[in-house]
Write a protein that binds this DNA or RNA. Structure first.
Lengths: 234, 234
DNA sequence: CATCATGATGTTGTGCACAACATAACAAAA
DNA sequence: TTTTGTTATGTTGTGCACAACATCATGATG
């Protein structure tokens, strides 16, 4: 038997890497509202843009449809799903509980590098408060979410949290962009998020992941209430 | 504009229905060990059996691969994933927590029909204890799981619980079939499950879904410990 | 005999052409 | 004018042929 070659595909990406690249690109576009809810996508356009045929691209679309971000309709097109805060109530309900579980199940051992990552985001968050736009806010929010999930080593929990997060990530940008008193709300959101990042960073510094989970839980719940109020929900 | 026709496709099934049919058929086969872990499946064989081409069948395989039940390897084949109780520890850890959430989040209103469904399963469970084989046990166990998840109206929670359940469903059959003292263990498992069904049915009769969640949680945890012990796990 | 190169065989991944389907545009009739 | 039937256009779903890839068998070579 010949020796196993490590073969990292040299300079090329594997078929699996290409799938992930396209998938994350489309997911980000949808959640950053680059593709507006309700808008139609054309498979052939996307295939051409990413330099592949329709066949492998459709694998990505199937996954995005399973996640609830797209909806393919025969003879019509691939439609970006629209979202409503009331329909997302159950998703938020679940996210709230899972956030607490991140601090409880299989917590990671906190080392200096981990603390540094949280401090780094906290710092950039402080800078954003003075001068930041909604897009920048969404981006940091997303980045912070990914960092938070690294607090548990429970891989299924991380995967599910990620899935639910991306189902709700768009609603804030969509709601905010429709509001009248834009800057005022924006500033309040910034400050609230800043507090969340600061509190969780402090909890991580003390190695208290349970506390981090509680803080995160509380902020997700509050965020949901604010969005529902802002959109005039029941 | 012409009136919208309800058109239930008459006697035929829609494209969506066909997908679900094939998906559930394959998932059941995998979880009932009709397809042994590690065995190879041929796309063309499956396509022929279900009367479709490889293309639509691959959609099903992609989903099953995303759920962790299959693994497609280029140039090799579609392999049924093997499972190990230690690798499933995190999945069980999460299932334990979600079981409790089923009783807490968006509980359904219990009516007579719901109580009847639980009583029906309890009765069939009692009959199985006197004369039942491992396959029958797995089938009723699966059916009871589905009934249990109907106790919550939180659709994301139900979907996620289902996904995690099918990731762990095979391990019991696999472990049991490898044991020496087969009948003895089997009888103990039957009785334990019988108690679980009875307890949860009683809780449902009293409309106490929180209690139902607690019972379910405890039994999943115990089941995990029994399986790990039976397989000589650490 | 052991080892490695080389071709044969089989499987999944991809590209492409066409079918199935839905919608919009348009024309004809009441 | 309004309604209705028909055609044109565009999009996703499917089937099929071939490419990419891995493995096994075979035989040459040390």
């Amino acid at each position: 038997m010949s020796a196993r070659i490590e073969a990292p595909k040299n300079s090329e990406e594997g078929v699996r890497g290409r799938f992930e690249r396209i998938y994350q690109a489309l997911r980000t576009r949808i959640c950053m509202l680059d593709y507006a809810p309700g808008s139609r996508l054309r498979e052939e356009d996307l295939a051409e843009e990413f330099g592949v045929s329709r066949t492998p691209l459709r694998r990505v679309l199937v996954k995005l449809e399973a996640e609830g971000l797209l909806r393919s309709v025969h003879g019509v097109g691939t439609i970006v799903t629209d979202i409503d805060i009331n329909e997302l109530a159950q998703v938020y309900e679940l996210r709230i509980e899972l956030a607490e579980l991140v601090g409880k199940l299989s917590p990671v051992a906190i080392d200096a590098a981990m603390v540094e990552r949280f401090r780094d985001i906290r710092e950039r968050c402080d800078q954003m408060v003075t001068a930041g736009d909604p897009r920048e806010f969404s981006r940091i929010n997303m980045e912070f979410f990914h960092l938070f999930t690294t607090l548990t080593t429970n891989e299924p929990l991380r995967a599910i949290s990620e899935r639910l997060y991306y189902q709700t990530a768009r609603i804030w940008l969509k709601t905010a962009s429709r509001l009248e008193s834009f800057d005022e709300l924006l500033q309040k959101e910034f400050v609230t998020f800043q507090r969340e990042v600061a509190d969780i960073t402090e909890a991580v510094e003390h190695g208290d992941l349970v506390a981090a989970g509680h803080v995160r839980r509380a902020h997700i719940a509050m965020s949901f209430r604010r969005i529902r109020r802002a959109s005039g929900g029941a």
